[in-house]
Design a binder for these strands. Sequence first.
DNA 1: TTTT
DNA 2: TTTT
Lengths: 162, 162, 162, 162
Amino acid sequence: MAGSVNKVILIGNLGADPEIKRTQDGRPIANLRIATSETWRDRTSGERKEKTEWHRVVIFSEGLCKIAEQYLKKGSKVYIEGQLQTRKWTDQSGVEKYSTEVVLQNFNSTLTMLDGRNSGGGSFGPDDAGGGFGSGSPSGSAPRRAAAADSHRGDMDDDIPF
Amino acid sequence: MAGSVNKVILIGNLGADPEIKRTQDGRPIANLRIATSETWRDRTSGERKEKTEWHRVVIFSEGLCKIAEQYLKKGSKVYIEGQLQTRKWTDQSGVEKYSTEVVLQNFNSTLTMLDGRNSGGGSFGPDDAGGGFGSGSPSGSAPRRAAAADSHRGDMDDDIPF
Amino acid sequence: MAGSVNKVILIGNLGADPEIKRTQDGRPIANLRIATSETWRDRTSGERKEKTEWHRVVIFSEGLCKIAEQYLKKGSKVYIEGQLQTRKWTDQSGVEKYSTEVVLQNFNSTLTMLDGRNSGGGSFGPDDAGGGFGSGSPSGSAPRRAAAADSHRGDMDDDIPF
Amino acid sequence: MAGSVNKVILIGNLGADPEIKRTQDGRPIANLRIATSETWRDRTSGERKEKTEWHRVVIFSEGLCKIAEQYLKKGSKVYIEGQLQTRKWTDQSGVEKYSTEVVLQNFNSTLTMLDGRNSGGGSFGPDDAGGGFGSGSPSGSAPRRAAAADSHRGDMDDDIPF
DNA sequence: TTTT
DNA sequence: TTTT
């Protein structure tokens, strides 16, 4: 549709190390599990409450996959900007299932590390290569960004088993 | 968790009129189906492509429910700001299902009409009453906003059948 | 600094037609004036109040400049996503002035028309060419997006007179 | 204007301790200086470049002021969500000046600490009181949020000297 | 399964 | 199921 926006912004921690897979033609896909949570004090009991929400984040950008692989691990705090996408799949017993994921793929996706632990964090767009912070190309670098720009974009509907 | 953010921003059109339900104790819940879509031209074929994504939006705020009921209908264009939430439920055959929804409930939720059709659009926070644009209290109105501030907040985990 | 985010999201109307200028080496720059406003009812007087805020939006992306030139005009409603930037300049009398602008330049910038008036709106990233909606390349189009990717990025600090 | 959005999202570090002032009638106002920066590698020279942007953040919410006062200091990393506002003022020599600030005031404002240093960070809406994390009321707490909800909203245009 |  |  013309004139629409689909944006998700999360700041949370990884519940596990990133899981990197490859499609048959070699493109990487990174899967992250990110927790966000809210805490509040119950009105009546006065108890401290907490509710954690788990998010499935899928990275289709080759550059961001490299960065996820190299710098993120269980516990890492990240800022991510992506879009909502729901996939339909059929499980072993033939039951139709839906999975809603936060996808980092297009030019408006961002992955930013908020930890000081791994060389201090950095901010990346979808096509940044992850050759270390020395040669890597954080957010704003034109040439690297332009390099391959979501070259998998046309495969968005591929039936990728993950 | 401390220091986390869970935010969804959508601009899209309603695929159907809002569906308003009530909990047993009378609190309203509005369900919206919102479509966002992207269009692009295929690299190789040159064809124009379009992909539409459907989002389930659930409004727990009484004020925003009223506004949805009064002003939104099939085709309405809206800006919404809410948060991601995944519910688990069991269908008739006993199969566990998950549904990920964009929830408008807390103080950071917003619903803004982008259509000129219904009195020109307006922007609302979660506790705005919907007594028409004349008496309604668009975004920024302190007193109305403070009135009932998500009084259902503590019921967030209720098992609401919708 | 590593790990930072600088993002502005506006939905508003143009107060005037876009003003397009060119740098000496021919790169286009579009300037937009966008109004956002809030309305509320005064707590005590019950009066309806409105406050309008005017924003200076500057587009350095060649593709988005074309789109602004072709499709936007006074009154157009737009969604824009850019970043805050403050420029220092000296006026004729030698007084130092500062101007804070919302800049659309890098890969995370977006311009989306929310009007039905001009062929119905569309969503664009920074490198979309504006050859009409037929040949234009809305948000998500990989090849066009990759084309020139902010080729002016290195000139960010140029002393552009506008 | 109906149907508008004015939102700024920043993640950055404080360049100095928060500066807390009070209006004549005792309301607190906190001023923060927040730096965001981008780094990139120059296309031609291959040099590593960095550009830092400084933002003026003004907090009108009493609860968020307390939190800023108690938990933020020079170097703190924060996530903030507010809105753009430009003030006009006249300096000592009678010259008209403009200052654009990110204002945290209304129900859609958020302040989240992203440091582990000060008791681990937390997320707050505009009306959270800052009586320590034990009694404080992080994002989502209905009763505290409802307490005074931007009771200074009507004074938005006060001529506050800061 | 994270984090505080 | 929307919208263009």
